[in-house]
């Protein structure tokens, strides 16, 4: 009798769990559907002709599929070039910036030294700075260095303005790594850099991946600094390129929306690939030991 009771109880619980999961799943489906609805105008508009858009409006089904918009955005809109520039800047600047931030975050989290808190706060204050206020002085500095109107001019300000957030996140994460792990390595005679490079960084992969996604996104979409620093057509980045579809008197919305889809594709792909690392669960075990 007792056996049957337990058995009944267990199946009941399992059924309740499944029911809960199904509920969550259904709720998520509904939510995501609503969440993605705004994209419908981007997809529709990128697939129709200008006349179709003008006559039938944004939310009607396209009269015919015009894939040519993507080709024209790529060729005529110069997106091929802008895409290359943005890709180059993002793929080089982001790892560089995160490396610089991680180096700075390590002593702030794991080495006790004078002024550690003031230095941390000093970095944090950067979060509060609206970037607009720095544009003109940055421009002047770049002109003095002679980097104006070149892609390298983007790196220092991008890295500088990315540091506060990255240091905040990384310091918080490094902090969670048990001190014993670090001191054990110290006893073994490892240098601080070795500890940082061989122990702390590998343990931090999920957060590094998260930062990579976030920073890549910021870099990919950054407009203001690029607008001010870059003049030549061949140096334009993707957000600058998108401006190109907005004429003074009219905007070519079909090409513009095709451009938007092209522009967000790499970031979505990046997110999907990096996601594996974000939630790889590496730390869960490692930290526990």
């Amino acid at each position: 009798m007792s056996v049957t009771t337990i058995g009944a109880g267990r199946t009941a619980r399992r059924r309740r769990l499944n029911g809960w999961d199904a509920l969550v799943f259904a709720a998520l489906c509904g939510f995501v559907l609503l969440w993605l609805a705004p994209f419908v105008s981007v997809v529709f508009t990128s697939l129709r002709s200008r006349a179709d858009l003008a006559m039938n409006g944004v939310y009607s089904l396209p009269q015919g599929i015009v894939l040519e918009n993507f080709v024209r955005a790529w060729d005529v809109g110069g997106f091929g070039t802008y895409f290359g520039n943005s890709l180059l800047v993002t793929l080089t600047k982001v790892p560089l910036g995160i490396a610089v931030a991680a180096l700075a975050a390590y002593p702030l989290a794991k080495l006790r030294f004078r002024f550690d808190t003031p230095v941390f706060i000093f970095f944090l204050i950067g979060l509060a700075i609206p970037i607009h206020v720095a544009l003109v002085p940055l421009f002047t500095t770049m002109r003095q260095i002679g980097w104006l109107n070149s892609l390298p001019s983007l790196y220092p300000p991008y890295i500088a303005f990315g540091l506060p957030f990255q240091i905040l996140v990384l310091r918080g994460f490094f902090d969670q790594i048990p001190d014993e792990v670090v001191s054990a390595a110290r006893v073994d005679g490892a240098s601080e850099f070795e500890i940082f490079w061989r122990i702390v960084l590998p343990l931090s992969l999920p957060v590094l991946a998260t930062l990579f996604i976030i920073d890549a996104l910021h870099t990919w979409n950054e407009l203001l600094i690029a607008l001010v620093m870059l003049s030549s057509e061949r140096l334009r980045t993707v957000p600058l390129g998108l401006l190109n579809f907005q004429g003074q008197y009219s905007s070519d919305f079909t090409l513009f929306n095709a451009g938007i889809l092209i522009a967000i594709l790499p970031i979505l792909l990046l997110y999907i690939t990096m996601q594996r690392y974000v939630v790889s669960g590496l730390t869960a075990g490692a930290l526990k030991e």
Partner: peptide
């Protein structure tokens, strides 16, 4: 890094230099 390097290699000549 290889991806990044590859991209840099092809683009360096054309885009990366000073004005």
């Amino acid at each position: 890094l290889q991806v990044a390097g590859g991209a840099a290699g092809t683009a360096l000549a054309g885009r990366f230099g000073a004005p």
